[in-house]
Amino acid sequence: MQPPDIQIDLDSTTPVNRQIVEQLRLQLVAGGIRPGDALPSVRRLAIDLGVHFNTVADAYRTLAEEGWLDVSQGRAVRVRERAMPPASSKTRQMFLRRLRQLVAEARASGVPAASLARDLAATAETLK
């Protein structure tokens, strides 16, 4: 299978390291990248994206802390087998708050509620 690409927007208000984390996490949850797969080294990805090494290193460190990546010194960056932790009620509350904000933003922009519900269900199914 062809490995996926990663895209960052330098004009976005979201910091580049967070964009990298979010996109990689999406690929990891969706199965685009599987446990055991190797990722580009910090240097390689930084050169390809044209960003500072520290930006990529920071993103990899965040994902390693979440248990997704093995970033041991001197070895290739690899995806780890990671069991989904049970979400605490606090975590669920936090995501519900963020979801409400996102839905409100979408509704304010004119996206119909029924369409939102359909998209949300489809997205949850894809990222199971």
């Binding site: 490995p3 996926p4 690409d5 990663i6 895209q7 960052i8 927007d9 330098l10 004009d11 976005s12 690929q27 990248i33 190797a38 990722l39 580009p40 080294s41 390689r44 990805l45 390809d48 994206l49 044209g50 960003v51 290739a76 960056v77």
Partner: peptide, 12 residues
Amino acid sequence: PAVRSAPLEPTP
């Protein structure tokens, strides 16, 4: 272009 892209292929 502000959007940059990179392959997640590890080895060149």
